[in-house]
Design a binder for these strands. Structure first.
Lengths: 211, 211
DNA sequence: GGCAAAATGTACCCGCAAGTACAATCCTGG
DNA sequence: CCAGGATTGTACTTGCGGGTACATTTTGCC
């Protein structure tokens, strides 16, 4: 019913929409913009998304959610030591800092995914899967003796995910990823046992002030 | 140049707009909605906001920012003991839980305040003032010997503010304030010294799973 | 009271972007 | 090859919402 060429076109449309939304926001993105960018016409767009804009936005939401999760996956699967946690933190911060306000994660949370219940469901599911992955990491790290064993893994995972979301929110408002970094650092400091046994869990390496 | 009656009308308009936006979002709120709700006409609206929608949105942003900050102020000024921190945390969580997705803070961060640089500046300033207040609380608590004195107060304040923002973000997506609570608890556990001196800083009081 | 300025009511305009109609082409299986 | 569905191009309709024009009333002030 749908040929390979058609599928390719459909994908071009979704990707063009995603790019446009990353750059200018859902609000400001029009179907004509998407058509222009994808080199197609409205007829194709409505051919592949009969329900129109809503349906396209949902597809974009799903694409971005998959995108975000796949980006994290290689790190999330490895979380079992202090070094791994720090690598993950650095990766998250670096990605967000580099992409700034066009970070797919941020766009997903704060922009797309707020315009329909279906899209919200997608982001909710992303949060849940993400939290599950973090929880597994925490449990593995506890098993390895590098994390405070008394912490509730799932609740702590919830806090970590929340920290990332908050950092991204601030990033979108202020353009600075410093808050993201501070929040993640606090979580890690709390989660991981001190490097030198016997020492207090205290690691203030950087200082942050918002401008 | 503007009489008392006029000022009252202007205020009615802003408040109607704020209410409408809380209930249905910035995107879905039209000027006609605002007029209907405030019992005015477009002529008044453009009389008091000559630059139109943008200007009205900015006024709403400022109103909500003031609203949020004033709500916190009584608690923020008192932060110097574990009990005070817990009161504040409970207040924040309870407010957000009660108001759900219509929480002014959430609307402010994730919805309004994203549609113009001016509005973003307002939210940025709110974040900064808020963080400053939290920082003062941390310093006071450290001075009182109830907070870990080795923590960088400003950086920790940044993390706390970020946690709230993240919690609100999740609230808006999932409708649950559990993440907010988990994130704040983690911050407090990390910040405050253990109740019994000598014990490890470990306090998993509740458990959270997202549905 | 009366007059200017402020406040308000009514009716309109206009552009934009979503969505539609339909014709033209391409591609694939038989 | 060729029929018929998949794909695409072009031109249109339409509704909505921001914004404007202008008439009318109300208010503050001398």
């Amino acid at each position: 019913m749908t040929t390979a060429k058609g599928a390719a076109t459909r994908q071009r449309i979704v990707e063009a929409a995603a790019a446009e939304i990353r750059e200018r926001g859902t609000l400001a993105t029009t179907l004509d913009d998407v058509c222009r960018r994808s080199g197609t016409g409205k007829s194709q767009l409505f051919h592949y998304f009969p329900e129109g804009r809503e349906q396209l936005l949902l597809a974009v939401t799903e694409l971005e959610a998959r995108h975000v999760f796949d980006d994290q996956q290689p790190y999330l699967g490895q979380l079992a030591s202090r070094a791994a946690w720090e690598r993950w933190r650095d990766a998250v911060v670096a990605t967000c800092r580099r992409q700034g306000p066009h970070c797919p994660l941020g766009v997903l949370i704060a922009d797309v995914g707020r315009y329909s219940p279906a899209a919200r469901a997608v982001t909710t599911q992303l949060v849940r899967r993400w939290q599950d992955a973090v929880r597994l990491g925490i449990e593995a790290t506890q098993a390895a003796g590098e994390a405070n064993p008394a912490l509730d893994a799932d609740r702590t995972a919830a806090a970590v995910v929340t920290a990332v979301q908050g950092g991204v929110s601030v990033l979108l408002s202020t353009g600075s990823a410093d808050h993201l970094e501070a929040a993640l650092d606090l979580c890690l400091d709390h989660l991981l046992v001190p490097v030198q046994s016997g020492a207090r869990p205290v690691v203030p390496h950087r200082s942050v002030r918002n401008e």
